[in-house]
């Protein structure tokens, strides 16, 4: 059966070099009876799927250590700290 265009496969989806997540499930949707799956990425170009995987990888990347804050002179203490 033809789907009306090219046949996209997982192998044709470009992504980051790191292993991709097991599953990437687009959120949204609102149905009170059956759970729904977005099928857009099964029919769009490989670039669309790859772009999503890259965005997910970036969002999951461990945050860089925060830059140390500029040192300021400590204010004079009125009393001993606990």
């Amino acid at each position: 059966m033809h789907t009306g265009g090219h046949c996209l496969t997982l192998a044709s989806v470009p992504g980051d070099t790191a292993p991709p997540p097991l599953v990437v499930r687009p959120l949204g949707g609102a149905n009170c009876s059956s759970v729904g799956s977005v099928v857009d990425l099964l029919f769009l170009t490989a670039t669309a799927g790859g772009a999503l995987l890259v965005a997910v990888s970036a969002a999951l990347a461990p945050a860089k250590p925060a830059e140390p804050a500029p040192t300021e002179p400590a204010p004079p203490l009125d009393e001993d700290p606990p």
């Binding site: 059966m1 033809h2 789907t3 046949c7 996209l8 496969t9 997982l10 989806v13 991709p20 097991l22 599953v23 990437v24 499930r25 687009p26 799956s37 977005v38 099928v39 990425l41 099964l42 799927g49 999503l52």
Partner: peptide
């Protein structure tokens, strides 16, 4: 002709 592995990867 859709790829079941692609469906699995994108949560279908």
């Amino acid at each position: 002709e859709l790829d079941p592995a692609l469906a699995e990867r994108f949560g279908v």
